[in-house]
Amino acid sequence: MGRFLARRTGESLFTIWGVVTTVFFITRVLGDPATLFVPVGATDAQIAALNHSFGLDLPLWRQYLHYLAHVVRGDFGRSFVFGRPAIDVVMERLPATALLAATAMALGCVLGCTSGAIAAMRKGSLGELVIMTVALLGQATPVFWLGLMLILWFAVDLHWLPAGGYGRPANLVLPAVTLAVFVAAAIARLTRSSILDILREDHVRTARAKGLYPATVFFWHIARNALVPVTTMVGLLGGELLGGSVVTETVFGWPGMGRLTVQAIESLDFPVIQAAVFVAATLVVLINLAVDLLYQALDPRIRAQ
């Protein structure tokens, strides 16, 4: 266990270093930020002065080393746009993204696992057909379209919920539902197929031959085993959502990391881009680590290897 943790921690640090390095070089080819910040018709001297103040006049390798030395201290420099430490700008947006991701994940898991389980246990019924059709549509529907439709129905037509904004629980409903639909659809399909696989296994027949109550058979001998693959997908989706769901946050004006990242890219705010990518990568790595640990707790055969 200790060796496993040490190895995975090493791998995680390497992954984060890779991401941080990649994003550094990619931002450098995005464009020249100084041209965006100086007034039209500025002199070359003015541009050079701005580049100097951003540290962009140094050779690339020195910029990189300088950057790495600061990154390990959690310092990504000051945002060109906000004039404050970039990491603070990003971390301020993290709660909004985390709230949206957690709500959507919780909603999507409950909905997806329940409907997937019903579809599997009632295979061949009308219920299964309906659930699987809705799930397929849910996965195929573009998130921005679903978001806009929800705004049209529930905000514009019915006036039940606000079309956007942040701060009150009502603001959370539409963006969370938009994301949850996608999550639930993916989880429902996987839950159904895993349960169908497990139903074919001999040990389920053994459990029934023991005279166990149907609920015991379902929870301990079917759902418990189906949890193993579903956990992996939940981890993948969770990482995706925590990185900030760009489209949903943009459609609903949700002040999260996804929207911030897009804005930072548009304004070539290098420090913020780098800080945002760093935070997102770290979160994904942490979630993967958690999923690996959970996976081992759920499946003793993996623990043995």
């Binding site: 296994e201 001999d202 040990h203 027949r205 053994t206 459990a207 031959a209 301990w220 001998h221 418990r224 085993n225 193993v228 759920l298 499946d299 003793p300 055969r301």
Partner: peptide, 11 residues
């Protein structure tokens, strides 16, 4: 049952 590997719950 036959095949005690698959007839016992692995987890």
């Amino acid at each position: 049952f036959q095949d005690p590997m698959s007839s016992l719950n692995p987890v």
